[in-house]
Write a protein that binds this DNA or RNA. Structure first.
Lengths: 344, 344
DNA sequence: TTGTAAGCGTTATCAC
DNA sequence: GTGATAACGCTTACAA
């Protein structure tokens, strides 16, 4: 195998007794080369174990075959589902995918973006720590196709894909109201997160529109959207005087809901009898909880898939227009709110 | 900004009024260039928004700055924790990381490996669908540094990082035996998975060594290591005649345990009073379950980190020797086996 | 249909 | 300390 060196087109050409350009043609425009030569070249390739050098290809062609997704929080399965959707779309387009994780840290996000810029990726999908961060503008200024995933950014500066969080908030609380709950907690935070604010807004809107007293929608703020914060919210909830204690909780995401569920059951509450719980996202583990969790479902994979398609359009279509895609969330009712769980 | 084109070293050189080689020196051996010129060059770089083209660098340098991890199952958080460990190590070494997901499909694994070969990644970490697959030999034959993660391969053909699964099996069942359980179920499968076999083996060894009747260690095979299969095992378990019904179950991973927990609680069993449950892996969601799950902990991030270090050694150290690293699992006791849960 | 040659952006080797 | 120059492996005009 050529004394260690990995074979190049030149080696293939020599082995097949053709010129280097012909080998390239076999790879890139096979229709232009005669069946016989093509066959010879292909045999030489497999005999030598030729593998095209993507860096060289990219350098010359000026275009990379790689997409990237910078996810916000690797400990939340939600983002992996989004990533999975992106990967499927990338696969369809015969593209590779870099997956990075900013872990909610702006500095790590910047490091990743910088690296991706160096790699000259074709497009970047990102769930940013802060949608208003200036280093995102930097990308657009550089002309790198970018799509914001599960967040929105000041309109038409770039594409984004998200779900209607206000609607999601409405759906969740409406469900609880329909079940007859008169005092409901909204668990979520920090309210620097636009999504939390919007879900809360939707929750309040529908609560009041149904004629309930605003004071009976109790806001339990959390410091993050994590299981631990869900537990802590549960403790605060248990500490409320009985007269003010909600009979149901709507959580801004499933991790919170899972934590709340755990704390509540540990404290001897029955779910949903003593406390009904609704989550948000509908991650796999929501359905797998001891008491399967009712949740406002986001089309996670679809989000990713759509984002990938948008970024590809921006990368390849000269007439591309930025668009703000918005999906509709939907309720998935399970045992954490309704006594007779539907079968899984 | 140079009429659209992204600036190259040449442009920077022109702007700074130096030669192209000097610019390169500023980036790669700054000590060799005078403070004044360096400053001039650096200003030119930032004014032009220069970003080094990694493809060109890689082509010329002959070495890429990228690692890759091909994970087995994106729906299992275990692998994401491993990936996280790898990413941290990669970050330390200033390397990028490709994360791919074979989804337990050999064909997808091959597609990914092929792409990674084209990218000339510096090393590949992989949890293979089948550790004996010939396309893995192919990689070693090509001289691509490779480390098997959480599996083992026929000894010294390559490095691997794993945990002692036999010991893990022993630990889990020993814990249950110590708690006084006399009939224990082992839930896991398919037994084509070496890990399942080894965990079962460890379980049997310790069970018998403690003087228990082998018949009282009941093997409940599953078709996969998933939540759904855990539920199904729970149903089978409930169907056993009371005299033969185990009072505890040891599951080959946490997803199974979570499924079993859900099914059991849904059926009105109390955990751990009626059924104690032990999982394996200690994923985050084990601790977050309604009844926090006792689990045999694998050092997930450490696994990834160590694997990355091995692959880097293979890539850079000419005296590299393949090694089979094995970590020790440890028990994390929680409420699913012991009545008074320790605080989290 | 095939071959030749220029050039992508970088790094490294050599003179100066 | 700095500046030409060749080379990395590939694609793509263009010439034969």
């Amino acid at each position: 195998m050529l004394n260690g060196r990995t074979p190049s087109v030149k080696d293939v050409a020599a082995a097949a007794g053709v010129s280097l350009g012909t080998v390239s043609n076999v790879m890139n425009r096979p229709e232009v080369v005669s069946a016989r030569t093509r066959e010879r070249v292909e045999r030489a390739m497999s005999e030598l174990g030729f593998v095209r050098n993507e860096s060289a290809r990219q350098l010359r062609a000026g275009t990379s075959r790689t997409l990237a997704y910078v996810m916000l929080d690797g400990t939340n399965p939600f983002f992996h589902d989004v990533a999975q959707g992106i990967e499927l779309a990338a696969e369809d387009a015969d593209l590779s995918l870099f997956i990075c994780n900013s872990n909610s840290r702006a500095t790590r996000e910047e490091v990743h973006l910088d690296r991706l810029l160096q790699q000259r990726v074709q497009g970047i999908l990102i769930t940013p720590v802060d949608p208003a961060a200036p280093h995102l503008d930097e990308l657009t200024r550089r002309g790198v196709p970018m799509v914001i995933v599960d967040r929105v950014r000041n309109a038409d500066s770039c594409c984004s894909v998200s779900v209607d969080d206000v609607l999601g908030g409405r759906i969740g609380v409406e469900h609880l109201a329909e079940l007859g709950h008169e005092r409901v907690a909204f668990v979520g935070g920090p309210d620097s997160l636009g999504q939390v604010r919007e879900r809360l807004q939707g929750a309040r809107e529908v609560w009041e529109s149904l004629g309930h007293d605003p004071d009976n929608l109790i806001y339990l703020p959390t410091e993050a959207l994590t299981v631990a914060e869900g537990r802590s919210a549960g403790e605060r909830l248990a500490g409320l005087p009985a007269r003010r204690r909600p009979t149901a909780a709507f959580c801004a995401n499933d991790l919170l809901a899972l934590g709340l569920l755990q704390q509540s059951i540990g404290a001897g509450l029955r779910v949903p009898d003593d406390l009904a719980i609704v989550g948000f996202d509908d991650i796999e583990f929501a359905a797998a909880a001891a008491v399967p969790l009712t949740s406002v479902r986001q089309p996670r994979q679809e989000l990713g898939r759509a984002a990938a398609q948008l970024v590809l359009d921006e990368a390849t279509n000269p007439n591309h227009n930025h668009q703000q895609l918005q999906f509709q969330p939907e309720l998935v009712a399970r045992a954490s709110t309704v006594r007779r769980a539907r079968s899984l």
